[in-house]
Amino acid sequence: MQTSNFAKAGLLAISISAAAMISWEIHLRNTGAPISYDDNEALYADKRAMVYEPIDQATVFIGSSRIKFDLDIPTWQSITGDHAIQLSNVGSSPRPVLEDLANDENFKGRLIIDVTEAVFFSAGGLYDWKTRNKIAYYKIRTPTQRFSFQVDHVLESEFVFLDQEYYSINSMLDNLSFVSRPGVYSGNPFPVEFHPVSFERQSFMAPRFMIDTSLQNQVRAVWTRPGRVIIPPASGRALDSILNSVKFLVDKIKARGGQVLFVRTPSSGPVLQNEMKRYPRTEYWDRLLTVTGCKGIHFADYPAIANFECPEWSHLSPAQAKIFTNNMIKILQEEKGWTFNKKPD
């Protein structure tokens, strides 16, 4: 082949691939898909590196998916003037992150721990291994990974199709309506509109999710589907062991001047009923506060946040998250003695 032919092939390749990707991007935008960042190790590590900010300037949030939806970071930051650092992980217990922070002598900050009983009071969440991978990644991330993350951030801020969880070729294939094999889990059961992720690691329901009840029902069906993996609640010695380990880790942070507070974020409908049945408050939440000696906010104790109807029974909508965050700040200031640099309006 002549050089000119190879050059023509190269130009054709660039033209076709650029046209294809631009068309794909336009199509996705027309479907209303928002910009969403990959909630991967690199994004976690970027936030994890921020926990050393002074105690009066930042609050770290750890937990599972609920606090990722329920804490509206812009609301928190605008009211308190305080930096919200989101280190929670979907489907995962916060205990691995708590352990990491407690063992980090340089962390002396403010910590809010979201308690979703099913993952907090169990041997572990379904995706604890992913959280441990993120923790490990932060410790060994290389200069090249940091640089790639910065480039990735710029690109992900511009292109919808760079949502690996839903628009990578592998995810799209996995989500095809392929005959499922008995006993084998495959594909992502959640619709793409359910949980886009912001650069601050806040999850939020897309506008279409809020108006499309079939999408909401799809997620509700995941929470209640028969055969769903249910992690058995810890009890007896196993529960004592969990509580003692949490107390040990919390005490480490407190001993360095840090502050720790637990929060039980809202749920509703059958999900809440199931949680109340499996994890009676006195045996789990109340004991947690007693053993650790920490303050806590249980949504059911505060009328302003006690009666949310979660769109899919487990997480708050963006509008509800604003109300919840607003009220949580009020409770923190008025009842729990927390102070922030910026006074509420």
Partner: peptide
């Protein structure tokens, strides 16, 4: 050249 271009573009995509 056009076939190579198509193959190349598929790989890029």
């Amino acid at each position: 050249w056009w076939l190579l271009g198509i193959v190349w573009s598929l790989m890029l995509i």
